[in-house]
C-alpha cells in the first residue's frame, strides 16, 4: 500500500526532532535509529526510554529531544508506556499520539521481557522498538540473550565467547500476540521507516527489533558501523521480515554472502575458529530455509 502522505525527501528537509549534541559515540547506530523513528512518526510521539546507552543522550541540563521523552527504569519500558497510554485515554488524547518505547536489547530480551510481554498481551497501542546492539553496551559490553553465539563480550571472553545462541524475539512477540512484528536494521533506513509508517496505523501492539551496530561493542571502526549492519543482513545473519497475523513476509532478499565476510570486520568475532564460523554459516542457511519454506513457526533445535 502506497504511503501517499509521506515523502521522505520532504521529511528530511524539516528540522530534526532529535537534534545534534548527544553524548552518543561516533558511529552510534542506536541514536541514528531514534532519528529515523522521528522522521517516520513525526512530532506526535511520546518516547519512553529504558535504561541503556540512549538514556545518556539527554543529561541535565541538556536535551536533544524536541518531543516529550521519559526515562523510567530498565525493566519497565512496556509498562511505563502502558501507563502513559492509560493517562492519554483517560484524558481523551490518545487518538493522534504515538506512544513509542525505545529500549536496548538487554532491557528487552532480558530484564524487561515481562513488561514487554504484558504490553503485547494486552494489545496496547504502543510501538516498541528494541535497538538491538546485541549486548549491554552502556555498562561496558556484557552479554545479553540477544548476543550472537561465540561473540566476545566482557562477560563472555575468548576463547569460547558466548556459548548460547540468541533468542528469536520477533518470533516470540508474534506468538505472544503482537499485532505487527518486524525485524529491521539501521543500515536499511527506508525499510525501517516504511515499517514504522505501517506500525503507526496498527490498532494494537507493535514490536520492531532494530539491529543497531555499536562501534565500541562490535569493535568496528566508527565509519564501518553501517557497513557492518549491511553485511549482517546480506549474509542472512539478520533477515529482514515482518509478521502480520502469523504471516511472515521477507522484505529484503539477502545476497547470502558468506558469514565470514560479515564477521571479519567485527573485532568481537576475531577469535573464532574456522569450525565455529562453519557452524554459524550452517545455522544461518538452516534458519533461512525455515523462514522461506514456511517452517518459521516450527520449534527451533538447539
Amino acid at each position: 500500500m502506497a504511503d501517499v502522505d509521506f515523502n521522505i525527501k520532504e521529511e528530511m528537509k524539516k528540522p530534526h526532532l532529535l537534534t545534534g549534541g548527544t553524548f552518543a559515540c561516533a558511529g552510534c547506530n542506536p541514536v541514528l535509529g531514534i532519528r529515523l523513528t522521528l522522521i517516520a512518526l513525526g512530532r506526535n510521539v511520546i518516547m519512553v526510554n529504558s535504561s541503556g546507552c540512549m538514556t545518556l543522550t539527554a543529561t541535565w541540563p541538556f536535551t536533544p529531544y524536541r518531543i516529550p521523552w521519559v526515562h523510567g527504569a530498565i525493566e519497565n519500558g512496556g509498562s511505563v508506556a502502558a501507563g502513559i497510554l492509560m493517562g492519554l485515554k483517560a484524558l481523551k488524547k490518545d487518538k493522534d499520539t504515538h506512544v513509542v518505547v525505545y529500549a536496548g536489547d538487554g532491557a528487552t530480551y532480558d530484564i524487561g521481557l515481562q513488561s514487554l510481554s504484558g504490553m503485547i498481551h494486552r494489545r496496547e497501542k504502543i510501538i516498541y522498538i528494541c535497538y538491538n546492539n546485541c549486548q549491554f553496551a552502556n555498562t561496558g559490553h556484557q552479554c545479553t540473550s540477544a548476543t550472537e553465539k561465540y561473540a566476545r563480550t566482557t562477560t563472555t571472553p575468548p576463547p569460547i565467547g558466548n556459548p548460547l545462541p540468541r533468542k528469536n524475539m520477533a518470533k516470540m512477540m508474534a506468538m505472544g500476540g503482537a499485532d505487527y512484528c518486524a525485524t529491521a536494521c539501521v543500515s536499511f533506513p527506508f525499510d525501517f521507516i516504511r515499517k514504522l509508517r505501517k506500525a503507526a496505523k496498527v490498532e494494537g501492539s507493535v514490536f520492531i527489533d532494530l539491529l543497531s551496530p555499536c562501534e565500541p561493542g562490535w569493535l568496528v571502526k566508527p565509519h564501518e558501523t553501517i557497513k557492518s549492519g549491511k553485511l549482517m543482513v546480506e549474509s542472512g545473519m539478520w533477515p529482514l521480515y515482518e509478521i502480520e497475523k502469523k504471516k511472515i513476509t521477507i522484505n529484503h532478499k539477502p545476497e547470502m554472502i558468506p558469514v565470514k565476510e560479515a564477521l571479519k570486520i567485527q573485532g568481537r568475532f576475531k577469535h573464532l575458529t574456522e569450525e565455529q564460523i562453519g557452524e554459524i554459516q550452517e545455522t544461518v542457511i538452516k534458519e533461512w530455509e525455515r523462514i522461506t519454506n514456511g517452517r518459521f513457526w516450527e520449534a527451533e533445535e538447539y
Binding site: V80, A82, G83, G87
Partner: peptide, 10 residues
C-alpha cells in the same frame, strides 16, 4: 511503572 507514566500525562 504505569503509575509513573499515567501521572506524567496529567
Amino acid at each position: 511503572s504505569a503509575c509513573l507514566g499515567a501521572s506524567m500525562t496529567g
